[in-house]
Simulated scan of single mutants.
Amino acid sequence: MTLYVKNMVCDRCKMVVADLFDKSDIPTTKVDLGVVETSNDLDDKQTETISQKLQSYGFELLDDKRKQMVHIIKTTLIELVQTQPEKLQKINPSTHISEKVGRDYKYLSTLFSEVEGTTIEQFLINQKIEKVKELLVYDEYSLSQIADLLYYSSVQHLSTQFKKVTGLTPSHFKQLKENKRISINQI
């Protein structure tokens, strides 16, 4: 049985969710970003129990098919930006999403906009900007290196997009003492 879990955005989330299923005596065959596959179908009581446990950790079981598709799109993009930025240059995100979900991109784009109130493209831009913020806060890379890492065509392109989304230049953001990052699941 495949279950879709909202707000799983990192490897720690996967560990927490896997642990919750294990402690609930529900064997899993796969725990990935936003998706849990169980060995057996769950009855209503098991579904309610695991749903409550997930909610106590800020996760949510998704049962609406439209929301499930949107969730797959979001986790696909989060995974691309957070763990596989090298693929940003090699693939077309719309083709990648369409292949991952198994539906026409135009349909998925319309669905995403209806459910989320924003476009897939804007969501991807927001994910990339959050990754830029993270890298700026860590202060391990120059802006030029960050632009290369996230496959921006130039530092100017990165800076323009950063300012459009945040209202700040990357250098001004870096100078701020307070952390202006947004949790990935709140984007």
Rank of each mutant, 00 (worst) to 15 (best):
V115L: 04
N179P: 05
K14S: 07
I78R: 10
L62I: 15
D22E: 15
P85E: 00
D64C: 06
D104R: 02
D32G: 01
S94R: 15
V101D: 14
L88N: 04
I187Y: 11
S98M: 12
V5Y: 15
T29V: 15
L77C: 03
Q52H: 03
K6Y: 03
P93H: 00
E121D: 15
S24P: 12
K133F: 01
C10N: 10
L54Y: 00
K65D: 12
F112G: 11
Y4L: 09
M15I: 13
T75F: 12
T47R: 14
T169Y: 08
Y138W: 07
N179G: 02
A18T: 00
R103H: 10
I26G: 13
Q84P: 05
L111R: 11
V155I: 12
H71R: 03
K164E: 09
S113Q: 05
S56A: 14
N92D: 15
Q156P: 07
K6S: 03
I97L: 07
S94T: 12
K87S: 05
E86I: 02
Y141H: 04
K163T: 14
T95H: 06
Q82A: 14
V101M: 08
K45W: 04
Q82E: 03
Q186A: 00
D41V: 03
Q82Y: 08
D148W: 01
P93T: 02
